[in-house]
């Protein structure tokens, strides 16, 4: 079967390119960030001074801002995304199911830059109004202190929440659909209400649900443009949701082209490397959790095969 071997090698080579790209990301980014890795070591992630002119690089504010904004987004998005998943999978009337899924997943297809533009001109002024309205007593608290600018952690968290909702809801819906009907029936037969039966299904699907939420978290970690445009870009470590802060992706977007100094460039690449590692770990974990429940679920917009698969089963 010589023809077969040629075919196998031929297509396999292209597959290897795909694998090579992923390896290249890790390799290239490590190689290019060697100067700062060698110069600062772990201190790079422990210190807060970011002064490209003086050649002093501490990336703590960025990792702080990235994790803070993503967790904030997660807290805002997860309940809503799960509500959407439950409603579209279990509760809504059949005729409006498809349109609702289409509409909620449309949220995932709007470009980040458009969210950013909308963020600057609509969301940020609204958040500023909220900040100005906040009573002084509240603003004494560390969580709500800081300037009333509109741009800041709250705006970033809100916009990220909107952007990750469709990812979590789409996968959570697939996970819920994979729960055997017998589980819900078992609960109903024991006198469960609708809520109690759905809770039984959620409990059965808990690993997959956690995976769906983590997938959204992974998306939030790497989101760049919209966050860059509304977070205020101040490298500070603060608990305040009103204060302008910074994220890893945002500092790369803002400073990369201006990084004339090799050390500055290396610092930015190292931030990229760690961002890559973080998203990789979160994504692999979430996928393992999701796969244990619903092997086909991939998230919105990615899976053109989904309807065909549904029809085929």
């Amino acid at each position: 079967m010589r023809g077969d071997l040629g075919f196998r090698v031929g297509t396999g080579l292209f597959g290897l390119v795909l694998i090579a790209i992923v390896v290249a990301i890790g390799f290239e980014l490590t190689r290019e960030s060697m100067p700062t890795i060698q110069k600062f070591g772990l201190n790079f992630w422990r210190t807060q001074t970011w002064d490209p002119v003086a050649g002093d690089f501490g990336a703590l504010p960025f990792i702080w801002g990235t994790i803070y904004s993503s967790i904030l987004a997660l807290l805002l998005a997860a309940p809503i995304a799960l509500g959407i998943a439950i409603f579209t999978a279990e509760l809504c009337p059949e005729p409006i199911q498809r349109p609702l899924i289409f509409l909620t997943e449309l949220l995932a297809s709007i470009p980040s830059i458009v969210y950013g533009l909308w963020g600057i001109f609509v969301l940020v002024p609204a958040v500023r109004a909220l900040e100005e309205w906040a009573p002084p007593v509240l603003r004494q608290l560390p969580l709500f202190s800081g300037p009333r600018l509109g741009v800041g952690m709250l705006s970033a968290g809100l916009i990220l929440a909107i952007m990750v909702i469709p990812f979590t809801s789409s996968v959570a819906r697939e996970v819920l659909k994979s729960v055997p009907a017998a589980q819900r029936e078992g609960a109903y037969a024991l006198g469960a209400t609708r809520f109690e039966a759905i809770r039984a299904a959620l409990f059965y699907a808990r690993t997959g649900i956690v995976g769906a939420v983590m997938l959204g978290f992974g998306r939030a970690l790497g989101e760049t443009m919209a966050v860059t445009m509304v977070i205020g870009n101040q490298p500070t470590v603060t608990a305040s949701i009103f204060a302008p802060q910074y994220t890893m992706a945002a500092v790369i977007a803002n400073e990369f082209t201006e990084a004339a100094d090799p050390l500055h460039l290396s610092a930015l690449v190292e931030i990229g490397l760690v961002l890559f590692a973080m998203t990789l770990i979160v994504n692999v974990l979430s996928r393992l959790l999701i796969w244990s429940m619903a092997p086909g679920a991939q998230g919105p917009g990615v899976d053109a095969a989904a309807p065909a698969k549904l029809a085929a089963t």
């Binding site: 055997p180 017998a182 589980q183 029936e185 078992g186 609960a187 037969a189 039984a200 409990f203 059965y204």
Partner: peptide, 9 residues
């Protein structure tokens, strides 16, 4: 039911 359906508890 036909097929036993214990909850994962």
């Amino acid at each position: 039911f036909q097929k036993s359906n214990p909850f994962p508890k």
